[in-house]
Design a protein around this nucleic acid. Structure first.
Lengths: 356, 356
DNA sequence: TCCCGGCTTTGCAACGTTGCAAAGATTAGT
DNA sequence: ACTAATCTTTGCAACGTTGCAAAGCCGGGA
């Protein structure tokens, strides 16, 4: 069977506790002893039993990440970033997919499933809304991502949706565009989709600040934010014969769909139509033309979320901080689709970049 | 603090063991007792401590998945599928990214990191090769994915690379194409990249079976298999002025890059150039035109891998089966890029489909 | 009424690890 | 050489759970 501390101790001729001390880098171990123990560990191929350690210490060293689904590019990249961030703290990540299913999202909060083996959870809901705020009051460390719920009892990492969307539109204004279409508005006014609403608000704010009125014809619905819906919205816009010289897509996936249709229709990007997206997916760097985008600071969001979670995990019950809302700085990444050149493989710093 | 079995037992007025019986659905519990215990559990919000259970039972209920990185579409979709498959067995999945780093891949096999909290691992290496076969002889259940190593001591789920590539090329032949370019050959003949070699072999086999010679000019190098390299290879092919009426890209990502460049160059797909890829990414269904592809059976690969892993986990040390090599059936999915129509949102069955 | 067999419930021990606190060993200072 | 201070090592208990096996309970048949 798998060797235990006891086996190592017997082989090295020391007590179990000493082996444990060596394993945990306890400083007061005589070098010769340490060596002897280490070689016994090596000989037996001993590995600590993390369940036992977890039981004893009260920590598993694993955190949960609950996202809608990895098949969506944005969440795959988010998960990638979270896993990297967790790893620097020697934490593992159990990934749970909620599949855009409200019940499953609720189940995550009820601590169901293997999530329970974790020390805490980073949760990006897609179906819960403001009205579910109370559900977030859970008995384990939880960090919330996204813009579905605000003002909850947990730490929350989100983005500057309004001001970054405003900056994206200003970027289009800066390069002289005046007929700026928006793709990705939510079809149902009753259902609040915060990201859509917030970014739309930024769009309006930018136009207003420029002394321009928003033309309702230029605001196009697309939901969910998938490639085909971006394509569809662009087709409709073209078919409608409405004049426009640029597009702000509420996310990159929509933008990529739109880009494709523009290509088919023979519209030159950026000369005829400039395009900017939102999210700065890895893929956007490699599209043709490369896609300008709002970089909401994914890596920073991930690192922040993990750091907040770790703080909460280490927090003692009596000295509990109040919930924090954090929005990393965003960046406008200007690429070919808005007339800036960038070469694939260039460092980000080589792109035209504007910081918040 | 978090309530334990003991707390529940006290509240319900039964023994700890009885509560445990209820929690584990032990059948011989009197209904009235069960009810009483359940309501105590409910009242206290009791959740089993999985570390303790894991220690006692010797299983954590979590498996590991080690892939290069989720930011690569293919692996994100694979992870998605694996997580879904694991979930049907009530298993959680810890995702570990090796970042295409050989040392990290070796570390996975040494059982380092939080992977150790798992009952077994599904591993898709990217840097290990045939020469590392012995490393796979690890003291925990391991299922191998991919085509980097064959003949190792573990169960292995891979795909029909040669025959499915052959079928892809035959699909192009079937629609009357004769000048079939291949994109994605590996640049270095010394380094064996099995997937590339195997698919190239299928390409040659199809041509040979059709009584045609492979034109070296049509075999284009592209590595790694990223979008930009597919685009680059296609640009070179066009610039070289070599005649071709179709392209077999060794994966979808390459194909999507190539598709883009064809569009820019004004070549009509599929009329001027038909294109087929490999992997059948979700995205390929939504590109414009939609991309024909080889579906290697991702969901089945995932389910098979998880099932094999579970079998190994449950296997007793004495009755150990010999390693199994499994290759799910593949499918040729014919879409617009080879002249078949498919409407986004259609069921797979609506696509033109050929089964292995 | 007594006994048998199945249904319910239970106490004990152990899974492998680390916190605690004390014992033993060593070194420096006087 | 003796004491104090420090360095090393140790045994014990406990983390929360479940396997084991036995005990208590019940109803039915003889």
């Amino acid at each position: 069977m798998t060797p235990t501390l006891r086996d190592v101790a017997r082989l090295a001729g020391v007590s179990v506790r000493t082996v444990s001390n060596v394993v945990n880098d306890y400083p007061h171990v005589r070098p010769t002893t340490r060596t002897r123990v280490l070689s016994a560990i090596d000989e037996l191929g001993y590995r600590p039993n993390l369940s036992a350690r977890g039981l004893r210490v009260g920590r598993t060293g694993v955190v949960g990440l609950a996202v809608p689904e990895l098949a969506q590019n944005y969440f795959a990249e988010l998960a990638d970033a979270i896993i990297r961030a967790a790893e620097t703290h020697n934490l593992g990540v159990v990934v749970e997919q909620t599949s855009g299913n409200r019940d499953r999202e609720i189940e995550v909060l009820s601590g169901g499933r293997p999530i329970r083996l974790t020390d805490g959870i980073v949760f990006s809901p897609e179906r819960l809304g403001q009205e579910d705020r109370d559900l977030l009051d859970v008995p384990f460390p939880l960090v919330l991502l996204g813009e579905r719920i605000f003002g909850g009892p947990t730490d929350h990492v989100t983005m500057h949706n309004v001001s970054s969307a405003k900056a994206a539109v200003e970027h289009l204004l800066d390069i002289g565009r005046r007929r700026i279409a928006l793709i990705g508005a939510h079809p149902d006014r009753r259902e609040a989709v915060r990201a859509a609403d917030l970014r739309l608000r930024g769009y309006r704010a930018a136009l207003e600040a420029a002394g321009m009125a928003a033309d309702p014809d230029l605001i196009r619905v697309a939901a969910p934010w998938h490639r085909e819906n971006g394509a569809e919205a662009m087709r409709e816009l073209l078919d409608a014969g409405i004049a426009f010289d640029s597009v702000f897509a509420l996310n990159d996936t929509l933008a990529l769909g739109a880009l494709r249709v523009l290509g088919e229709a023979g519209r030159q990007v950026p000369d005829d139509v400039a395009v900017i997206g939102f999210d700065n997916l890895d893929e956007s760097q490699f599209s043709v033309p490369s896609l300008s985008s709002v970089d909401p600071g994914r890596q920073e969001i991930a690192e922040t979320a993990v750091n907040l979670l770790i703080e909460r995990i280490n927090e003692t019950a009596d000295a509990r901080q109040s919930p924090r809302l954090i929005k990393p700085e965003f960046t406008i990444v200007a690429r070919e689709s808005t007339g800036f050149s960038s070469h694939v493989g260039d460092h980000a710093s080589a792109d035209g970049v504007t910081t918040a």
